[in-house]
């Protein structure tokens, strides 16, 4: 294997994990774009979704089969959370929303901890170690599947936002909520739908991660900090930005892991994050903050 092959393999692997990052970040950026809040419970909801997928697997349901039902369930959960808890409890104040989502993340994470302990769990799927031979490198099948499904979800989400009435309502609320409500759009309902969509993205991401990753009550945190980075990088609220940012961060992580080792590879992401926040907080794709 030449060093060029290793580099190509690292980039490819980065793109694979980047796609899942992008999916997680799309949920986050969607909520930010419409509600104008950072959902600090995003990571905890991801952890919860991974446990849901894990339990489904224990009950004999393959993660890829559980994907659609779990996405629907988490859509409902997200909808309820925004409509019944975050909305009413925050009295419409941004700082309150920030703290409420933080509170929710603490509650979810620690309830998971109380129920499942801090054991690290993994699942054994038959295809866990299957690979695709690409000639110059081998690609793990679950990672390739994660890439494909993430892209599919992004396309579906784009169709939803661009083509359907609900999508138009979401975009209208994102642009001008007062105007939208004057035009007869139920803003509280649209907020909740958006939050539900974010949670559904997480459920799908959880099912994609489960075959190759471990489950732990705090597992979501690792991903959500990366997702924050991506969202800021791609411009808060910009979905194409989140997708490009996700792929970019995946590749950076993979390459810096290759060059500096695993633990410092993570550092690269945070350094990018801080630099982007300081130098260009509106993101590289320029959505106005």
């Amino acid at each position: 294997m030449t060093s060029l092959d290793i580099l190509a393999a690292a980039v490819l692997n980065g793109l694979m994990s980047g796609a899942v990052y992008a999916l997680i970040a799309v949920g986050l950026t969607l909520v930010y774009g419409v509600l104008h809040i950072i959902n600090f419970a995003h990571g905890a909801i991801l952890s919860a979704a991974m446990f849901a997928a894990y339990l489904a697997f224990q009950a004999g349901v393959d993660p890829y089969v559980a994907m659609v039902p779990l996405a629907l369930i988490f859509f409902g959960l997200g909808y309820g959370l925004q409509r019944l808890v975050i909305g009413p409890a925050s009295h419409g104040d941004d700082r309150n929303i920030l703290l409420i989502t933080l509170g929710l993340s603490i509650v979810i994470e620690n309830l998971l901890l109380a129920v499942f302990n801090s054991d690290t769990r993994t699942v054994d799927v038959a295809y866990g170690f299957s690979t695709l031979d690409l000639g110059f490198t081998f690609l793990a099948l679950p990672r390739a599947a994660a890439f494909g499904v993430s892209c599919l979800v992004a396309v579906l989400l784009w169709i939803l936002l661009a083509q359907t009435d609900t999508g138009k309502a979401i975009r209208a609320v994102a642009k001008e909520k007062l105007g939208a409500s004057l035009a007869g759009i139920d803003v509280a309902h649209i907020y909740a739908v958006t939050f539900g969509l974010g949670a559904a993205c997480l459920a799908i991401a959880a099912c994609l991660l489960l075959p190759t990753y471990y489950v732990h009550p705090r597992v979501g945190n690792a991903y959500v900090l990366v997702a924050f980075t991506i969202v800021v990088l791609g411009g808060m609220g910009s979905i194409p930005g989140a997708i490009a940012g996700g792929l970019f961060v995946g590749v950076v992580e993979s390459l810096s892991g290759l060059m500096f080792g695993e633990s410092l590879g993570q550092l690269g992401i945070f350094v990018i994050f801080i630099l982007v926040l300081l130098i260009r907080p509106t993101g590289l794709f320029g959505a106005k903050a």
């Binding site: 925050s90 309150n96 703290l99 933080l102 620690n110 901890l113 302990n117």
Partner: peptide, 19 residues
């Protein structure tokens, strides 16, 4: 000694106080 139960309570308290 249930892990995390105290923090879970704190989180609930945080939401209640803000609400």
């Amino acid at each position: 000694r249930v892990l995390g139960i105290d923090l879970a309570l704190f989180g609930i308290l945080l939401v209640l106080i803000i609400a």
